[in-house]
Design a protein around this nucleic acid. Structure first.
Lengths: 287, 287
DNA sequence: CGCTTGCGATCGCTTTATGAGATCGATTCT
DNA sequence: AGAATCGATCTCATAAAGCGATCGCAAGCG
C-alpha cells in the first residue's frame, strides 16, 4: 500500500468510477483499474463493487477512505512543515467573525502585515459554524470564533472577552420598551451569526417572540436600521461607542451572565503550526 | 514525496548513515543516496548534513521525521482497519496494572476468551507510566491504568472505582501504630507502581518519612512481608478480603479523599478501534 | 428488438523508475 | 602512510508504471 495507490483509490471513491477517476488524475482508465486491482490483491479484500454505471465502495473501502484522506493531508502537512524554515512567509489564511475583525483585529492585522511583510495574510469572514467547518476542512489555518468550541480535534485559545449589549432606536428607556407586546423585530449581521442565536435566546428567556428577522451584510447598515426603529440588535459594547455617542441608538445593558461572550482562536490540533501562524499568535498574545 | 521515500528517510535518520540504512532496508547504499537526493530536490532543501561518520538531520529533516513516522503508522492502521471485517479476530494486546488484573479482570478475560475464540488475547502487566508509554508507542492497543491520565492523544474510559486501604502486621490498631517514630517501612509491588506514589503521598501528609522501600514481584510475597511485620503497604480493599479474614494482616481505612482511586481504560485517540477491542470494551461495559 | 452509450477488464507495447554493482574522493583512526 | 568507512556517482539490467486499443457487459432508447 502506497500513497500513489491511496491517491488513485481516493479519486475513484470520490468520482464513483474508474474512467472519471482516470480523467481526474490525468491518466488512462487501464492504469486506474490495475492500481485498484493491485491494491485489492494486497489487502486481500475487494474495495469496490463494480456495476454498469460505475463503482461503489464496499464496507472495506468505506473503512479505508478516511485513512486515504488523512494520509494525503499528513503528507501535505509534512511538506509545509519542511518548507517552513522558521521565518514567517507564504500564505496565511485566517477566518474571523465580522464583528471581531472590526472591533479587535484591525490593529493586529496591520501590525502583523507591517512586521511580517513576506506573509500573504488573508482574512475570511464567516459565522462560528462556518468557520469551524472551514478550519476542520483545512480551508483555513485558524479562526476567531465564538467560544467555547470544545471540539476534540481543535485547539482553542481564549483571546478576548466581549460585553454584549442590546441596541434599539434612540429614546427608548429599556429593552422592554423596544419589545412591546412580547414581539421583537431583530436585525442581525448574517442569518447564522452566533450573536443572533444569543439574542434569540435572551429574548426567549423573557418570553419575547421573534417573528421577523432582518439580515444585513454590513455593520453600518445594521446601525442605520436600528437607529430608524426597524428593530433591535445585539452587539459588543466596545463596537458601538461612536454610534451611541452620536445619539443614533440607545444601548441597553444585559445581566452579566448573558452579556459576556468569549472570543477564541481555533486551529487544528494535529496540523503543523506554521511559523506565520505562530508569529501571529505571539503578536496577538502581546496585547 | 512518497511512502517509499519516507521509509528510506526514516531508516537513514534512525541509523544515522546511508550505508547502515541500506543494510536495514535490504538494499544497497546507492539506492538510498539516490532516494534521499531526490527527496531533497523535491522539497527544495537538504534533509541531512553529510560528514565523514555518517549523516545527521538538518532542522528541516528534524521537522520531517515525525511526519514520516506518523505516515507509516497511519498506513499500518489503515491496513488493519480494512482487514478488520467486523468480527473480532487476530491479536489483541492489552496492558493492565497487576492489581487490577488480579482483582477485576480475570473473569472478564475468561469470558472474552470463551466468547471470541478467534482473538489471541494477551495481557501485559506494568505500572501506569510504563503502560501509558507502551500505548503511545503502539505496543499495546489499550491498557487499564490509574486515572486520571488526561493525555491529549489518549481516550480514557472510567472502568472501576477502587477503595484503597493500608495493610500492616496483625494486631496493630491503627496506621499510626505501624509508623511509630514518624518512620514507615513500605512494601510495594513494583518500584514505579502508582500505589507506591499514592502511599508515599499519604504518609508525607502525615509527616511520616519513608527511608526504605521493599519491592516484590508478587502479591503473595507482599502479603507475607506485611504479615511478618516488615512494613506496610497500600492495596485495593477488595483484593485483601481473604488475607484479612485469615487474620494474617490488619486493615486500616483511609479518609475518603485519599482512599478512592479510579481505574481507567486508555487507548489511542487517532488509532483504529479494532473489532476485537470494541468487543472487549462492550463486554467490560456490561458489568 | 437492435442500436448506442458508458462502464470496467484485459492485452501488448513503450517509457520510466528502481535496484545492483563497481568505482571514486574525502575523512578519520591507527 | 595506510586501512577503513562513508557518501557520491556512473552504468547496466530488470521490474514497474503508463499508454492505447480492444473486448465483454449492462442499461437506456428509438
Amino acid at each position: 500500500m502506497d500513497t500513489a495507490d491511496l491517491k488513485v483509490f481516493e479519486a475513484v471513491a470520490r468520482t464513483g468510477g474508474m474512467n472519471r477517476a482516470a480523467a481526474a488524475l490525468n491518466t488512462v482508465q487501464s492504469n486506474v483499474t490495475a492500481r485498484i486491482r493491485m491494491l485489492e490483491a494486497a489487502l486481500g479484500c475487494p474495495l469496490f463493487e463494480r456495476h454498469s454505471r460505475g463503482v461503489t465502495l464496499t464496507a472495506a473501502g468505506d473503512r479505508l477512505l478516511p485513512y486515504a484522506r488523512r494520509v494525503a493531508w499528513l503528507l501535505a502537512d509534512a511538506e509545509r512543515a519542511v518548507r517552513d524554515g522558521g521565518t514567517p512567509r507564504g500564505p496565511l489564511t485566517i477566518g474571523s467573525l465580522e464583528t471581531t475583525a472590526a472591533l479587535r483585529l484591525s490593529p493586529l492585522f496591520a501590525r502583523y502585515a507591517r512586521q511580517y511583510s513576506e506573509v500573504d495574510l488573508a482574512i475570511r469572514p464567516g459565522t462560528t459554524a462556518e468557520l469551524i467547518e472551514a478550519v476542520l476542512e483545512r480551508r483555513l489555518e485558524g479562526a476567531f470564533v465564538c467560544g467555547p468550541v470544545a471540539h476534540p480535534s481543535l485547539i482553542e485559545r481564549i483571546m478576548f472577552q466581549e460585553e454584549l449589549a442590546i441596541l434599539s432606536a434612540p429614546g427608548l428607556a429599556s429593552m422592554e420598551a423596544a419589545t412591546q407586546g412580547g414581539i421583537a423585530r431583530i436585525v442581525v449581521l448574517r442569518a447564522g451569526c452566533s450573536y443572533r442565536q444569543r439574542l434569540e435566546h435572551v429574548l426567549a428567556r423573557r418570553g419575547i417572540a421573534v417573528p421577523r428577522l432582518m439580515e444585513f451584510g454590513t455593520l453600518e447598515a445594521i446601525f442605520g436600521c436600528v437607529s430608524a426603529g426597524l428593530g433591535i440588535t445585539l452587539l459588543p459594547r466596545a463596537l458601538i461607542g461612536p454610534v451611541w455617542q452620536a445619539g443614533r441608538v440607545a444601548v441597553h445593558a444585559l445581566p452579566p451572565d448573558e452579556a459576556s461572550v468569549t472570543t477564541v482562536f481555533i486551529h487544528r490540533r494535529e496540523a503543523h503550526l506554521s511559523s506565520a501562524l505562530r508569529a501571529f499568535l505571539a503578536l496577538a498574545a502581546e496585547d
